[in-house]
Computed example of a mutant assay.
Amino acid sequence: MEIVITITYAILLLALFLTFIRLLIGPTLPDRVVALELIPSILVSLIGVYAINHNTSSFIDVSIVVALIAFLAAIGFARFLERGGPRDD
């Protein structure tokens, strides 16, 4: 079981690293927005794996809060762009 958890952590951290690269060098604003929305999803996954690994159910509540905050941030960012925020594409 420990090997599976370690592999899962490695894959999620690699995905997080690649997402940060896309966020930094994304050629267009939609690329950066998708990367910005993917980061909280990966963090929720990491928190979930941590909760499973340490058998702590309270971290599931933390992951739900992170997901809700990410959803609200997505709505706020979409409204900002809808009202004519800065664009580079």
Rank of each mutant, 00 (worst) to 15 (best):
T8N: 12
I21M: 05
I5V: 15
A15P: 07
F80T: 10
P86H: 06
I75G: 06
V34N: 12
L38F: 09
T28G: 04
V65N: 04
P27N: 14
L24N: 00
N55R: 10
A51N: 14
T8L: 07
E2A: 11
I3N: 14
G76D: 12
L13N: 11
V65D: 13
I7L: 04
S57I: 04
P30R: 08
V65L: 03
G26Q: 07
V66P: 01
I3C: 06
L46N: 06
T8W: 01
R87A: 12
A70K: 00
F20E: 14
A74V: 10
F20C: 15
S41C: 10
D61P: 00
H54G: 13
E37V: 02
L14Y: 05
E2Q: 08
L24W: 00
T28P: 03
I52T: 13
I60V: 09
V49Q: 11
N53C: 13
A70R: 02
T19L: 14
A15F: 04
G26L: 06
D88P: 00
T8G: 15
M1H: 14
S57P: 02
G48I: 08
D89A: 13
I69T: 15
P30G: 11
V49Y: 01
I39V: 07
N55E: 14
L38C: 12
L13F: 07
L18H: 07
I3G: 05
L38P: 00
S57C: 03
S58V: 10
I7W: 00
I64T: 09
P86Q: 06
A70C: 07
M1K: 04
G48V: 08
I21N: 14
G48A: 13
F71D: 15
A51I: 10
Y9C: 08
T28D: 07
F59P: 02
L29D: 11
P86C: 03
R32W: 01
A78C: 03
I39N: 06
L43K: 03
E2F: 02
V4N: 10
H54Q: 13
L38Y: 03
A51E: 15
N53K: 10
A78F: 01
V33G: 00
E82T: 13
E37C: 10
P27G: 11
T28L: 05
R83M: 02
S45W: 02
I5A: 09
V49L: 14
I3R: 02
L29A: 10
T28E: 00
H54F: 01
Y50W: 14
I21E: 12
S63L: 04
G85K: 02
L68C: 07
L72Y: 06
G48H: 02
A78I: 01
L72K: 02
V62E: 01
P86K: 05
R83L: 03
